[in-house]
């Protein structure tokens, strides 16, 4: 058994506990400020512990096999679970409004954690074309992009749930106008980082495979995600869409980005066609 697996399982358990804690917290309107602060501390404390366990697992694996988590679905899921958790924890720390989205965001992270639990943890081989600093920039930009989109999706989810079956639970959260403004600011930041990811990816591909664009599945779906995000930004400005419709648009873009990041390895033997 790989030495990092117990830490992976511990991290998954802590993410699950954080999600359960967020879901079990009493409705906003019914809970006092002190109760909410304690619940937030428990939720984000468990998330922080999960991040620490996952960081240790990633570091252990990295040391053992000699390269970072860039190749297999297992590695991409593990590193994304960590980076998305970290992005959400930082957002929650910097903007308390984001903490209200924990019952939306943490179950999504739990889905990733569950997927990680069943992914094949076999050791991987790092192709020489991955030994470049540009890869780091490419991957880092991608992770910040998805992190921004995740937090925006949490805010969008909160708006939609409040308008639907969970009206009472989120009744005390800020107005849709406030949530909408923050969510779209995050989506603009996501657009900046996705653009950086595409440019860094093109530079890497030129050096690694002698072309900056070759219509491989990940390139195509990254471009489609960029187009969808740009279209959503333009549509929102053109038709002055309501916060609720805007929230659906954010969910759509996030779903596309999620499929691009984690779906493409299912239809391709590796994250990029040239890897082998």
């Amino acid at each position: 058994m790989a030495s990092e697996l117990p830490w992976i399982w511990l991290a998954i358990a802590l993410y699950a506990a954080a999600a359960a804690c967020a879901m079990a917290t009493r409705p906003l309107a019914a809970a006092g400020p002190g109760t909410r602060r304690r619940a937030d501390a428990a939720t984000f404390g468990l998330l922080g512990a999960g991040l620490a366990a996952l960081a240790w697992a990633l570091a252990t694996r990295w040391t053992r096999i000699g390269h970072g988590p860039f190749i297999s679905l297992y590695e991409v899921l593990a590193s994304s679970l960590w980076s998305l958790g970290l992005a959400y924890a930082i957002a929650g720390w910097r903007a308390p409004i984001v903490r209200r989205t924990a019952p939306v965001v943490l179950p999504m992270l739990l889905v990733l954690a569950g997927w990680l639990a069943v992914a094949n943890p076999a050791d991987t081989h790092l192709p020489p074309t991955y030994e470049t600093a540009v890869l780091w920039f490419h991957v880092l930009s991608g992770k910040v992009f998805l992190g921004c989109a995740l937090v925006a999706t949490g805010l969008a989810g909160l708006m939609l749930l409040r308008a639907g079956p969970c009206a009472r639970r989120f009744a005390g959260a800020p107005s849709d106008r406030v949530l909408d403004a923050l969510a779209w600011r995050l989506m603009l930041a996501a657009l900046v980082f996705e653009s950086l990811m595409l440019v860094a990816g093109a530079v890497w591909a030129q050096d690694a495979w002698g072309r900056y664009w070759a219509w491989d599945p990940l390139e195509v779906w990254s471009l489609v995600t960029w187009l969808a995000l740009s279209a959503a930004v333009h549509a929102r400005l053109t038709w002055r869409v309501t916060p609720r419709l805007g929230a659906w648009m954010i969910l759509g873009v996030f779903a596309l980005a999620f499929l691009t990041f984690f779906g493409v390895p299912f239809v391709s033997t590796a994250p990029h066609k040239g890897v082998l």
Partner: peptide, 16 residues
């Protein structure tokens, strides 16, 4: 421009 009262402290104060 960000929506008014969106700064982290203001938003939380508003919420709570």
């Amino acid at each position: 421009p960000l929506a008014p009262r969106l700064a982290r402290g203001a938003a939380l104060a508003n919420e709570e």
